[in-house]
Design a protein around this nucleic acid. Structure first.
Length: 836
RNA sequence: GCCGGGGUGGCGAAACUGGUAGACGCAUCGGACUUAAAAUCCGAAGGCGGCCUCUAGGCCCCGUGCCGGUUCGACUCCGGCCCCCGGCACCA
């Protein structure tokens, strides 16, 4: 049999959708549904693995349309970024040229997949009409003190003499020239996201429709811990030196203090002492080693004593200060109190350098004696050697000691976060220029709103060396101070592309507005996004940044809500031979060949059928053929049994009740059961089981029609009701399949005489009465083991079913001669005899 | 180590609230059609575990990572463990 003509159908409907503007959604629509897929970086080459989230989003959007929702499903481009700049360096193509070409390529790919977007709202982050507002937002943050400058280390390639992004550093070496990468400190821009750490954390609790794994990842990332900041004083100078601890209950067990090599007090602390040279040299070494090795977990601990001491405020003890590589300046206060008896890291360090150890928490069962420990005791227990707190369970002591220290003024409760401020500046060309100028007299000044956008210059050189390419522009650097009108220097760093993507979803609501980034009333009406679809790799980057930006904009009075996304969906990867598809690894399946051979609808159907969409799924070429086979079967059935669009609605009555023959009632029932099942599955995004039940309906339909050909070896004319049952089943099948295989269903719908688009037709309803089974198969168990089954009328009473069961020899064999102690009956499902 | 997710046929997977495990599909095997093949259609199928039947079939046993528990009944609930994937991790 000939395959169905997908290659003419698909372009035909793609064109129709565009011409009819089916997917354009007015901003003032009622009954809104905002369905958003993360906008992609326009890399140019897509494989079938990339298709998954767009296909899922499109199926959801089209289903919502059939449910009568006004669906907004826009698409745009995360267009700034490194690859465009690399193309400029390597092949001399100017970044916007390369980017625009890729956008065109990808757009045609989306079209070939049959994805319906509201292209009237399209934008790209590299367009000045967009980045003007990114700059505007930056200025707002700057004015609020949420954007600030500080010195921070960057990756530095000495051979290219340039700054490298993290992804350009491979195994500590420069991606391009393979030189050993070092670090240098540079003044950089940060967003004060740590100010929002608590709200970002607590907000997660309200996100009920986010996957647990994403929320967990964000919680880990934010890393909140409660503890106490303790004021030690340097014994020799009386200077304060504070430490953060989550274990104040161990304060009486502190035997030394450790500072980070970067600690600002260190230099003064050792100035003029015997140890000065040794300590400073050590600190220098640690700082050099740090950037690459600190994250490698198995670095061994090293340290040196400073010769200075602090006084422990709880007992007046004088204990030594050390400097060590295992203390991080970025976390807590950059100095920690060491309790070797109860902290494994301190334990290892103390053992190595022969530092003393004191047990202050004893296991309630077995006592501990200091000398015999072979690792730190980190479990709960009872306080010992802890002054007035001896004998108190340590959990309780934690609270009491904290209270006491707060009263005494020797410490206070605080909260520390793992989350760091967001470094937003990049020493690159292809990004949003940071809209500030530096004036000798007035300092750092934001570019005034009316002067935005600060445009990217085009007279730059791409060498891959030196500072940001923006510094090579003849005109860009020179600026005028908005304050004094004097000469100023323009910032040459650009913004991290995550700044663009932290607010782009608002822009879709008013994409062409020239007076504001977005219109608050409209955004308030459309948000939160009903469904946001994207990869889980964005859990701790993009998805935190969007939440942060939303809260900032809320605080600025620009938005009426502070969580932007209602339901988040993270699709699983498509793998090939168990590995993530990637063009560079040569295991990517390109979509064009597939579409050429089977059509986009087959790819869509397979992608949705392959497994639960939130889990990884393996690409399987032969299973793709199975999807194609299914579509062909449906196609040929419709060709043989044409139905008229809209007929279904009139048929339900005629097909139910006692009138029609059994085969008709069975098919009618199956049709309504399928509508019920597919409706529930679509709402829950269980596309794989939705497809499975549609296949079942199709199989039932085949068996039904087959009967006319098979009977007595000759063809029988189907009766009127039989034709109607088939029509109802087929029309339902076409409507239920439409969100998943849209071209296919549009074409069948049109051939059935349906005017317009199938997506303007409402999703079929099922009739509970028609879906109900008249007879049920009841499993019969004896002592919990299945021994047979009986057919009974739906809703049959226990005694009826018991009688049927006894009449069944297979079952009665197991009961005979035994005492029936108990009978358990679950109506319409199961009967269990408990015999003894 | 902590946190999250997962482990079901040869494979992808299904199973409502504890009620016939394996729907649906892929691969496989057998058959029909064909000169032949492809395509298409029909059928079989968890177990190289046992028994009866003289081969079509019937019966029993075992089976959802492992061990135990609760229950008339457990993929599902509880306790303990193993393995895989992901996140965090010298974070005090």
């Amino acid at each position: 049999m000939k395959p169905y003509p997908f290659s003419t159908i698909e372009p035909k409907w793609q064109k129709r959708w565009e011409e009819s503007r089916l997917f354009e959604c007015p901003t003032d629509a009622e009954n809104r549904f905002y369905c958003l897929v993360m906008y992609p970086y326009p890399s140019g080459d897509l494989h079938v693995g990339h298709g998954r989230n767009y296909i899922i989003g499109d199926a959801v959007a089209r289903h919502a349309m059939m449910r009568g929702r006004s669906v907004l499903s826009p698409m745009g481009w995360d267009a700034f970024g490194l690859p465009a700049e690399n193309a400029a360096i390597e092949r001399g193509i100017h970044p916007p040229v390369w980017t625009d070409r890729n956008i065109r390529k990808m757009k045609s790919q989306f079209r070939a997949w049959g994805i319906g977007y509201d292209w009237s709202r399209e934008f790209a982050s590299h367009e000045p009409s967009f980045y003007r507002w990114t700059q505007w937002l930056f200025v707002k943050l700057f004015e609020r003190g949420l954007a600030y400058r500080k010195s921070a280390p960057v990756n530095w390639c000495p051979s290219c003499a340039t700054v490298l992004a993290n992804e350009q550093v491979v195994g500590g070496r420069c991606e391009r020239c393979d030189a050993q990468v070092t670090t240098t400190d540079l003044e950089q821009w940060f967003f004060r996201i740590t100010d929002y750490a608590d709200r970002l954390l607590s907000g997660l609790d309200s996100l009920e429709s986010w996957p647990e794994r994403v929320k967990t990842m964000q919680r880990n990332w934010i890393g909140r811990s409660e503890g106490v900041e303790i004021d030690f004083r340097v014994a020799e100078t009386d200077e304060p030196l504070s430490c953060f601890t989550t274990r104040v209950d161990t304060i009486f067990g502190v035997t030394y203090i450790v500072m980070a090599a970067e600690h600002p007090m260190l230099r003064d602390l050792v100035a003029g002492t015997e140890q000065e040279r040794e300590v400073l040299e050590f600190a220098e070494r640690v700082r050099a080693q740090d950037q690459f090795d600190r994250s490698a977990a198995d670095v061994f601990k090293q340290g040196v004593a400073t010769g200075r001491h602090v006084v422990n405020p709880v007992n007046g003890e004088k204990i030594p200060i050390w400097v060590a590589n295992y203390v991080l300046m970025e976390y807590g206060t950059g100095a920690v109190m060491a309790v070797p008896a109860h902290d494994q890291r301190d334990f290892e360090f103390a053992r190595k350098y022969g530092l003393p150890l004191r047990v202050v928490i004893e296991s309630p069962d077995e006592g501990l004696s200091g000398g015999e420990l072979d690792s730190a005791y980190v479990e709960d227990g009872v306080q010992v050697n802890s002054g007035q707190f001896d004998g108190v369970p340590n959990r309780e002591a934690m609270e009491r000691i904290a209270d006491w220290m707060e009263e005494e003024g020797t410490g206070r409760r605080t909260v520390s976060y793992r989350l760091r401020d967001w470094l937003v500046s990049r020493q690159r060309y292809w990004g949003t220029p940071i809209p500030v100028v530096y004036c000798e007299r007035c300092g750092v000044r934001a570019v005034p709103e009316e002067e935005l956008p600060v445009l990217l210059p085009t007279d730059v050189e791409f060498t891959g060396k030196g500072e940001s390419p923006l510094t090579t522009s003849k005109t860009f650097r020179r600026a005028v101070c908005p304050e004094c009108g004097g000469e100023a220097r323009r910032e040459t760093d650009t913004l991290d592309t995550f700044v663009d993507s932290s607010w782009y979803l608002f822009r879709y609501i008013s994409p062409r507005d020239e007076s504001a980034p977005f219109v608050r009333e409209d955004v308030d009406r459309w948000f939160p996004v009903d469904l946001y679809i994207g990869g889980v790799e964005h859990a701790c980057g993009h998805l935190i940044f969007v939440r942060f930006m939303t809260k900032v904009l809320h605080d600025l009075g620009l938005l009426g809500f502070d969580e932007p996304i209602d339901t988040l969906f993270s699709q699983g990867m498509i793998t090939l031979d168990g590995a993530k598809m990637s063009k560079s690894k040569g295991n990517a399946v390109p979509p064009d060949e597939l579409i050429g051979e089977y059509g986009a609808d087959t790819e869509r159907l397979y992608t949705l059928f392959a497994g639960p969409p939130d889990r990884d799924a393996e690409w399987n070429d032969t299973a793709v053929e199975g999807a194609f086979r299914f579509l062909n079967r449906v196609w040929h059935t419709v060709e043989k049994w044409p139905f008229r669009a809209g007929e279904r609605e009139r048929l339900s009555d005629e097909l139910s009740g006692d009138g029609p023959p059994d085969n008709v009632r069975d098919l009618h029932r199956k049709t309504h059961q399928t509508i019920r099942k597919v409706s529930a599955d679509m709402a829950a995004m269980h596309f794989n089981t939705a497809v499975a039940s549609l296949m079942e309906l199709s199989n039932a339909l085949r068996a039904f029609t087959e009967a006319f050909q098979a009977e007595g070896g000759k063809v029988r004319e189907p009766s009127g009701v039989e034709r109607k049952a088939v029509a109802e089943a087929l029309e339902s099948l076409v409507l239920l399949l439409a969100p998943m295989v849209p071209h296919f269903c549009e074409e069948l719908w049109e051939r059935a005489g349906g005017g317009g688009s199938v997506f303007e037709v409402s999703w079929p309803d099922y009739d509970e009465e028609s879906a109900r089974e008249d007879f049920v198969t009841i499993a019969v168990q004896v002592n919990g083991k299945l021994r047979g089954e009986v057919e009974a009328e739906r809703g049959a009473m226990e005694d009826v079913v018991v009688e049927l069961a006894h009449a069944n020899e297979k079952i009665s064999n197991h009961i005979e001669g035994k005492e029936v102690r108990r009978v358990i009956y679950v109506q319409d499902r199961l009967l269990n005899f408990v015999v003894g």
